[in-house]
Design a binder for these strands. Structure first.
Length: 324
DNA sequence: GGCCAGGGGATTA
DNA sequence: TAATCCCATGGC
């Protein structure tokens, strides 16, 4: 596997941080190395990404070692530029979102280097089917188990075999019991049925998602077994560049309640609020907020200090605490 | 629209 | 050991 690893460097990347980006809940197959770099399996290839700050903590050079599109440097560069969303001006988006929103300013401060990855649509679909009503460590375990059982062995990493994400055709051909060893619970049936539905057109409609209106691809996604509004929004945000969608899950309901004073149960009010206030960047706002509430959940005083969060001195117009 | 089962593992009581 | 929770959805 190491034979055809090629090196790629992007200089002067701003508003970027590896930990923020890979640990904010949008992806499940990236792992932090002891040297601070991250290794992952992407599109059937191995990759390691490191980041060397040159101007401040979140601006510097991204170094990628990968065997993806080995022998085609132009294609490889285009792939990673898109995957890491390097063409988007996050500085400008952060200024827009943070204006007159002290909560968002603190949320951005908690993850200033978050970038929304542009991941494989099929992998994102199945990954977020698995994510429903589930916790992140187990989601990761389920996905690895699925890859081990039905992916292709693409090499060895630190002595262990590494597997690609299973193809549409492979999962579409499964019997129900072929997923038993993955311990997916009731989600196994959703995956088996959705795979068959997607395979009916060879994945064409899924792949076209980026190029059709949001409402149209959302209705297709929600026609798949086990895909509701939340999972559909995650797929659109993390693999189809639909940055305006605002996935609402238990954590987002919690953050909107705690910091924006909204009813946790009132999903339609939260959706309306996001549309009006975050607009075309709703999905990016959602990631800052999701990351923020999950980070400070630890009740760690040092974290409170780092993020500028001080109990008792909240902005009265924006902050309402829920009874717990 | 409200309610509850669906699996399994991690965390909390 | 028992309850509760988890990046929800489907079906009644």
């Amino acid at each position: 596997m190491a034979n055809d690893l090629g090196k790629l460097i992007f200089n002067n990347v701003s508003d970027f941080n590896l930990d923020d980006t890979f640990d904010c809940g949008q992806c499940f197959r990236w792992n932090r190395e002891s040297d601070g770099s991250w290794s992952g399996i992407v599109a059937g290839a191995f990759a390691n990404i490191s980041f060397a700050p040159t101007r401040g903590e979140n601006t510097g050079s991204v170094v990628i070692w990968s065997n993806l599109h080995a022998g085609d440097p132009a294609r490889r560069e285009a792939y990673w530029r898109d995957y890491l969303d390097l063409g988007r001006d996050y500085g400008a988006i952060k200024r827009i979102l943070g204006t007159e929103d002290p909560v968002m300013q603190k949320a951005i401060k908690a993850g200033p280097g978050i970038r929304i990855l542009n991941q494989n649509k099929w992998e994102t679909l199945i990954s977020f089917l698995i994510s429903q009503n589930n916790n992140i460590p187990r989601i990761r375990g389920c996905i690895e188990s699925l890859c081990r059982a039905h992916g292709r062995r693409i090499g060895k990493l630190k002595g262990s075999s590494v597997f690609s994400f299973p193809t549409i055709e492979r999962l579409a051909a499964l019997e129900d019991s072929d997923l038993d060893m993955c311990r997916l619970g009731y989600r196994a049936r959703y995956i088996a049925e959705t795979a068959k539905q997607v395979a009916r057109d060879g994945g064409a409609r899924l792949e076209a998602g980026e190029d059709v209106p949001t409402a149209e691809i959302e209705s297709y996604l929600e026609s798949l077994t086990g895909v509701g509004p939340k999972v559909a929004n995650c797929i659109m945000l993390f693999s189809m560049k639909k940055t305006e969608v605002f996935p609402i899950d238990v954590w987002v309901r919690r953050v909107m309640n705690r910091f924006y004073g909204m009813g946790e149960e009132n999903v339609s009010a939260i959706k309306d609020y996001a549309e009006r206030n975050f607009g075309e960047y709703g999905g990016i706002a959602q990631q800052y907020l999701f990351n923020y509430i999950r980070t400070i959940k630890d009740d760690n005083p040092a974290l409170y200090e780092r993020f500028g969060f001080e109990s008792g001195s909240m902005d009265e117009t924006a902050v309402v605490f829920a009874e717990e």
